[in-house]
């Protein structure tokens, strides 16, 4: 598998994990209402079945992300992983009937535009090297 396909597959997998995770977080948060700083809230969270969906999504995203991050610069990897904004907004509109105001839609367009600009930015492999150099002893002073 060439690197391009590897990254595309990796980011799509990451997107799916992140979307399921966010959806589960919201369902768990709704289940645990009312929000109070007390053990009773944590108990309601722990007994919300959805919180375990969020944990699984988190773990899946974590393993996928760490595998990608070894070579991808943190900025580009993180930006591409945030395209979940689009999928989460679509799922929220569908399942929770959330509607964005005109101002919020304008804001979302700018945010998604910014994410696209960042994630299509030509990555510079020196990023990874500079981070590695910082953390190993064989590149003193770099």
């Amino acid at each position: 598998m060439n690197m391009r396909r590897f990254y595309l597959f990796g980011f799509l997998l990451l997107l799916s994990f992140d979307t399921v995770s966010q959806l589960s977080f919201k369902l768990a948060a709704n289940h645990a209402i009312p929000l109070v700083i007390a053990p009773s809230w944590l108990f309601r969270v722990a007994t919300a079945p959805w919180i375990y969906g969020a944990v699984l999504g988190y773990l899946g995203a974590f393993v996928t992300y760490m595998s990608l991050l070894r070579h991808a610069p943190v900025g580009a990897a993180f930006a591409a992983s945030h395209l979940q904004v689009v999928s989460v907004i679509l799922v929220s509109a569908w399942l929770f009937h959330e509607r964005l105001s005109l101002a919020e839609l304008l804001g979302s367009a700018l945010i998604v535009g910014g994410i696209l600009v960042l994630s299509t930015n030509k990555s510079d492999t020196r990023h990874a090297d500079s981070a590695a150099a910082l953390l190993t002893d064989d590149h003193p002073g770099s």
């Binding site: 966010q22 919201k26 610069p73 943190v74 993180f78 930006a79 929770f96 959330e98 964005l100």
Partner: peptide, 30 residues
């Protein structure tokens, strides 16, 4: 997410991207 709708939460959460890029610049010299 208990305090805001999911779509609003995920949009506000995008500020993390900016913070990570600035952090990458400061710490890893990206």
């Amino acid at each position: 997410l208990s305090l805001v709708p999911l779509s609003e939460g995920i949009l506000l959460g995008s500020l993390n991207i900016v913070a990570v890029l600035v952090g990458g610049r400061l710490i890893f010299n990206e």
